[in-house]
């Protein structure tokens, strides 16, 4: 028991130091919405690990927690680990609108089988759990990635 506890502490400490010294790349990210009709969409941008599980929430567009439950799959993860959010911007995004956010990406995770997932939900309307899902690769980050739902496309520009 004691040994396992120690190990756990060690692992957590290790993770902490690892992430603290990890090389962070900043990306400017454009989320361009399609011309849909309805309320503003709530969108989450999540980092998915190679096993296909949520690792971290990079951005939430929309700050009223009341609607988080409409992003069903992400909400499950959020309820388990509510602290794993990098940023929340105030506004949800309406049809035809766009939002520009900055994402902090761990350079060591690029091209390592990780994915970026954009989920979207609109009040009284459909929920897309993989509106945009792209590999976290240098190639995908350099091109325009089209969405399946409310998102028309997303684009990235590396700024640092």
């Amino acid at each position: 028991m004691k040994l396992s506890k120690l190990l756990l502490v060690g692992v957590i400490l290790g993770l902490f130091t690892y992430s603290a010294f990890a090389q962070v790349s900043k990306y400017k990210c454009l989320v361009q919405m399609s011309n849909y009709v309805g309320e503003g969409a709530y969108i989450t941008i999540s980092l998915i690990n190679p096993q296909g599980d949520y690792e971290k929430t990079l951005q939430v567009l929309g700050d009223d927690e009341k609607w988080y439950e409409t992003l069903e799959k992400w909400n499950e993860f959020y309820l388990q680990q509510p602290s794993q959010i990098d940023g929340v911007t105030g506004a949800s995004v309406s049809g035809g609108g766009r939002s520009i956010v900055t994402l902090d990406l761990d350079a060591s995770k690029i091209d390592k089988g990780y994915k970026l997932r954009f989920e979207s939900a609109v009040e009284n309307n459909k929920y897309y759990f993989d509106d945009v899902e792209i590999p976290l690769s240098s190639q995908a980050l350099a091109q325009q990635n089209d969405g399946k739902g409310y998102i028309r496309f997303v684009r990235f520009i590396k700024v640092k």
Binding site: K28, T89, T102, K160
Partner: peptide, 10 residues
């Protein structure tokens, strides 16, 4: 005005 600062933060 919305944008990015010198450190590329929103």
């Amino acid at each position: 005005v919305k944008g990015l600062d010198a450190e590329w933060n929103e």
